[in-house]
Amino acid sequence: MRAFVFPGQGSQAVGMGAALAAASTAARAVFQEVDDALGQNLARLMAEGPADDLTLTENAQPAIMANAIAALRVLETDGGIRLVDKADFVAGHSLGEYSALCGAQAFDLATTARLLKLRGQAMQAAVPVGEGAMAALLGADYALAEAICAEAAEGEVCQAANDNGGGQVVISGHKAAVERAMALSKEKGVKRALPLPVSAPFHCALMQPAADAMAEALAKAAIRAPLVPVYANVTAAPVADPDQIRELLVMQVTGTVRWRESVEAMVAAGVTEFVEFGAKVLGPMIKRIAPDATTTSLVTMADIEAFAAGL
């Protein structure tokens, strides 16, 4: 069995998608449709930068999605390999869940782009700059990270935001609480605690205003049943019902990205091969969780052609 997976924030880079667009009309069509939906030249920003503008959450989120969907569309259009024929499940890390839903045709591309633009704006606006923080705990399992967060909170927000597996858990919350957690983690035997260069504390209760904004937007968005089940971040379980998808995407804004459990659940369901679109981020993460799994990343035309030839 095979899962198609889609990366999250942090996988953006100036130049992303440019070579693929030069090689394929299918890729160019994706970037043009996203540009038209957003009323901005996101494709040029992706290709040329500046990096600071691309890194802004409201640009990075639709850009990462567009790049991943472009790779998928090239596989489907130029390679003749359809997701519905070759993938048993899809999943995505944080914003990548929207890419997964788009790939499985639960959302159309224009809707996905507009939702992610709004999601990025709402998440950035939810917490004043400097009040929140995130940190990666390396050498900590999820239970230990939760215990550290609970002890460090002291009445503030401090939560496990991303359970990435392989002993990496990202925590999020009020800046002072996250700093307390980082100091405490050393006492608890965590190998390293690294502050992350992010603009807002994602996937914690401080994101509630963004969750409210997404609830309003998703209530108006057309969602179809996906072509294949989607493993949801907040449940680490497959979902196919449009109303449940809508509800889980709202919960995802403040909830933990249960990536380790999602990968473990897909492996338990019989998945032996994971194919990542648009980046080479999730592959190494998956190998730490499921060493026996096969991982492939499709970023370039050569990647896509080699994968299609091997099927």
Rank of each mutant, 00 (worst) to 15 (best):
E48G: 07
M134A: 04
P62V: 03
C204F: 10
A193D: 06
E151H: 01
V299G: 00
S94A: 15
V5T: 10
M207E: 10
N162Y: 05
F202M: 02
N162P: 00
E97A: 14
C204H: 13
A221G: 13
E273Q: 05
G167P: 12
L248N: 08
S11L: 11
V178M: 01
R260K: 02
F307C: 06
S262I: 08
A87C: 11
M285S: 07
L75V: 06
V275G: 00
L45G: 01
R288D: 06
A183C: 03
G49R: 12
A22D: 02
K220H: 00
A71C: 13
E156Q: 10
S11Y: 04
R180G: 09
A222L: 12
E156V: 04
F277I: 10
A268P: 05
A122M: 09
T55L: 01
V230F: 00
I69F: 09
V250I: 15
P226N: 07
P7Q: 01
L137R: 02
A183P: 08
T300W: 04
M285C: 15
P128D: 02
F6V: 09
A23T: 15
L95I: 14
G173F: 12
V267R: 02
N59T: 08
I64M: 10
A176H: 13
A306H: 02
A221W: 12
T57K: 09
G173M: 13
A43I: 09
E146A: 15
P62Y: 01
Y98G: 02
A219Y: 12
V190Q: 08
D78I: 09
P284S: 08
M266K: 03
C204A: 03
A60K: 07
A87K: 15
S172I: 05
T294M: 05
A18G: 10
M123D: 09
S262K: 08
D141K: 06
T254I: 04
A265R: 14
A113D: 15
G132W: 14
V157F: 07
I69L: 11
I286S: 11
R260F: 07
A152D: 15
S94D: 05
G132H: 15
F274E: 07
D36Q: 10
E151Q: 05
D108Y: 15
M214Y: 09
A43V: 11
S297P: 00
H93W: 10
H93E: 06
V129H: 01
A145I: 05
D35K: 05
R28T: 04
N59G: 00
A213G: 12
I148V: 04
L298Y: 05
I286L: 11
V90L: 11
Q9G: 01
V34N: 13
P242Q: 06
N59K: 12
T235E: 04
